[in-house]
Computed example of a mutant assay.
Amino acid sequence: MATATRNEEYYKALLEKRTEYEGVFYVGVKTTGVFCRPTCPARKPKFENCEFFDNAQQALLASYRPCQRCRPLSHPNHVSDIVRMLVEAVEENPEKRWKEEDFKKLSVDESTARRQFKKRFGMTFVEYARSRRMGLAMKNIRSGQTVLDAQLSTGYESSSGFRDAFSRIMGAAPSLLEDGKVLKASWIDTRLGPMMAIGDDEAVYLLEFVDRRGLEREVERLRQKTKSAIIPGTTGPIRSIEQELTQYFDGTRSQFTTPLHLLGSPFQKSVWEQLMKIPPGETRSYAEIAVSLGKPTAYRAVAQANGANQLALVIPCHRVINSSGDLGGYGGGLIRKNWLLQHEKSFISE
C-alpha cells in the first residue's frame, strides 16, 4: 500500500474511531506533540498535522509523548481503578446484593460504575454482580443444594424473583439447569483490541474479538448448543490462552497448545483441522483447502466453514485467502487480517 493511500485510510479510521485499527497504527499530532491510538476520544487534528506510525516505539523515537486521554502505552481497554476495585469487592463477597450506600462506602459514584462496567463488560455493575451471584447459585445447585437453598443463599426472598433473575441471566429456569453445564466468559486484552474467551475447566470453546459483528448471536448459539449457562469468570484454559496470546503478540510464540472444544459438523471440523496445519507466515486458498480434503469442488463449503470458526487466531482462519491472492473476508476485519499475516511472517524472517 502506498504511503499516501495508507495515511488517508488511517486518517479516516481515526475520524471514525475504528476499533479494528487498534494496534495497527498510532498517530502523532504535530501541533500538540502527543501521539494517540486510533480510538482516542480527543478532538481530531487536521490531516496535515498528523504523522502515522506502525508502533508506539516509532512515535516515541519521533519525540512524541503519550496522550493522557487514550493512554497509547496501555491496552486499549485497560481496566480502570474503579472497575478493578469493584470486581475485587464482588470477589470478596460474591453473594452480596449491592445498594446505594455500598457505593458511598467505597467513595464510588454509582452512575460512573454503571458506565464503566457497561463499556468494559457490556453489562452494568449491578448486572455483573447479579451474574456472579447467579453463578454461585448454579454451582450450589449442581453440588446438590436445593433450588430453595440456592435462592436464599443469594439473597432472594421471593422464589419467583429468583427464578426470573436466574432465567434472564442463565437462559433457563434453575430447575431445568440442575444437571446443566456452566461456561465462564472472560475479557482478554490484546494488542489488536479486546477479545472474549469462553471455556470451562477442560477447554476453550470460543475466542473472538469483542467488536466482531454478530458476537452476541455467536455466544447465544454456543449457549444453546452446549445447553450451558454462561457467566463472568475465568478457568485454567482461559488463563492459558491469555498467556499464549500475550506470547503470540510479543512474537515469541507461533503455535497454541491450549485445549480446544470444537463445536461443528464433521465437515467443519475437518476444515478447521486443515487450517491448523497451515504454518505461520503462509496462506492457503479456499480451493486449496478443498483439494486437501479430497473435495475439490467444495470450496464454497470450505469458505462457510471458515466463517463459522469461533476460535480466532487459534484456528487460523486468517491464513485463508482468495485464489486471486486477495485477502478475502475476516470476521475480525481485513485490517486485522493483514496485520496478523504480516506479523506471522516475522516468525520466519527472524
Rank of each mutant, 00 (worst) to 15 (best):
253 R>D: 05
13 A>Y: 04
341 L>D: 03
324 S>K: 10
157 E>V: 06
113 A>Q: 02
79 V>Q: 15
230 I>F: 02
42 A>E: 14
32 T>E: 11
312 A>V: 00
205 Y>Q: 06
77 N>P: 00
103 F>C: 05
54 D>P: 02
328 G>L: 00
73 L>M: 15
92 E>R: 13
111 S>E: 14
39 T>S: 09
105 K>S: 14
274 Q>N: 09
49 N>D: 15
21 Y>H: 08
137 A>Q: 00
161 G>I: 00
13 A>C: 09
12 K>Y: 12
35 F>W: 03
343 H>G: 06
156 Y>A: 00
220 E>R: 14
283 T>L: 08
108 V>Y: 02
119 K>L: 11
155 G>M: 05
104 K>V: 07
318 H>C: 01
244 E>L: 03
288 E>L: 07
199 G>E: 03
309 N>T: 02
269 K>A: 07
142 R>F: 03
227 K>H: 13
12 K>C: 10
9 E>P: 00
146 T>I: 05
5 T>A: 15
178 E>H: 12
1 M>P: 10
332 G>E: 14
39 T>V: 13
321 I>V: 15
109 D>S: 11
225 K>Q: 13
327 L>N: 03
292 S>N: 10
144 G>Q: 00
191 R>K: 13
63 S>I: 04
61 L>K: 14
162 F>P: 02
152 L>H: 08
144 G>P: 02
98 W>N: 08
214 G>F: 05
101 E>K: 14
130 R>G: 05
26 Y>G: 03
22 E>W: 06
70 C>G: 06
147 V>P: 03
221 R>V: 07
86 L>R: 07
172 A>I: 01
126 V>C: 00
10 Y>W: 12
78 H>P: 01
18 R>M: 10
91 E>K: 13
260 L>C: 07
281 G>R: 06
279 P>H: 11
71 R>Y: 11
175 S>V: 13
97 R>I: 15
142 R>T: 02
319 R>N: 04
211 D>A: 10
4 A>C: 04
37 R>L: 03
223 R>D: 05
169 I>E: 12
243 Q>G: 08
68 Q>F: 09
302 V>M: 04
142 R>K: 10
189 D>F: 02
204 V>A: 12
272 W>Q: 05
31 T>A: 15
334 L>T: 08
220 E>Q: 14
162 F>Q: 03
196 M>L: 14
184 K>L: 13
4 A>N: 09
95 E>K: 11
296 P>E: 10
4 A>T: 11
191 R>Q: 08
216 E>F: 09
15 L>Q: 12
237 P>H: 07
309 N>W: 02
311 L>T: 07
49 N>K: 15
28 G>T: 09
54 D>Y: 10
20 E>P: 07
55 N>P: 04
236 G>N: 03
75 H>N: 11
243 Q>L: 07
112 T>Y: 10
271 V>E: 04
70 C>D: 12
246 T>D: 14
14 L>K: 04
119 K>V: 08
333 G>N: 04
285 S>H: 07
301 A>K: 10
21 Y>P: 01
21 Y>G: 01
170 M>T: 11
344 E>P: 08
278 I>P: 04
194 P>F: 07
109 D>R: 12
237 P>K: 04
251 G>H: 06
191 R>Y: 01
269 K>I: 15
14 L>S: 00
59 A>D: 05
76 P>C: 14
250 D>Q: 13
212 R>V: 12
124 T>Y: 02
68 Q>M: 10
19 T>P: 03
265 S>R: 12
349 S>E: 13
292 S>D: 12
119 K>H: 08
